[in-house]
Amino acid sequence: MRMAQYILRRVVFAVFTLFGLSVIIFVMARVLPGDPARMAAGPRAPEWVVEQIREQLNLDKPLHVQYFLWLRDVFNGDLGYSIFTKRSVTQDVIEYLPASLELIAVAAVFQILGAFALGVLAGMYAYRWVDNAIRLFAYIGISIPAFGWAVIFQLVFAWKLDLFPVQGMLSVEAPERITGFVTIDSLITGRFDAFTDFLKHAVLPAMALAIGPMAQEARLIRSGMIDNRYKDYILLMESHGVPKRKLMFKYLLKPSAIPAVTVMGMDIASLLGNAFLVEIVFNWPGFSRYAISVMLNKDLNAIVAVVMVIGVIFIIANIIVDIIAAYLDPRIRYVERGE
């Protein structure tokens, strides 16, 4: 009950956030210099053609009218017309987003598992060689950007060692498109070859994306465990003869993991933005490439849609993280209710 209330409040709050975001990005995209109608028509097009496109895109109307027209369409599931791809933005999103989300999902799994494994290991063996090795690895992991790792992995694991495919998302025939998510579609249609093939392709780009945030979170978990290891509440349990394993994995890990968990959500949502160069390196047919292209072409509807999609993903990730954090830390649940 308490939890349900908490979640409901988060969701209501999220809706308002999205409204705010939509206003800001809508206005920003339009007030910044550059005439989208002219860019769509091309530099040599006569003025009346540009005028026509302007009318078509509602750019001749006052800003607030434009916004409400856009909002009305959004509620009907229509994100508008893209002057870059010359079709509905909704279609573009449906086509490009799933591949990115799947890549991010794989990256998120690596990131979370890796962060906990390395963080706990380093925290348990603090200042010993295991910890030193992990810390060195973390420094390197954080210092090299995702696309750097992408190139390194591609060279080492795909090209030199030939363990993974060099690029692309699938090298077998794609499964029938039902949800747009290759993993789900391949499982629904029983195409397990496509499923494993997809995973093989996803490993390297996902690792490249995951390694930076993973290293950072591992360090957070490590320092949390070291900070808390000699707190009275751990020593008390130790003084009562609670076995080491329970001491570490129950009483020490839970309070120590909370800061890392709260940044994980943000980190995972940011992958969508960071994925761009990695998607380029691995020629991954994802959303990031689409996002950058439309921005360079000042494709208004598409820009707003891209930002909104990223916003929605951020918000969902944050809600999930808040729920997990509230589950882990009772103080959050209760304090929020003013107890």
Binding site: K231, D232, Y233, L236, M237, K250, Y251, R331
Partner: peptide, 14 residues
């Protein structure tokens, strides 16, 4: 052992 500071002696998340 009974610890000095009861505020710190119990695990806050259990």
């Amino acid at each position: 052992m009974i610890f000095q500071d009861p505020m710190a002696a119990l695990n806050p998340v259990f």
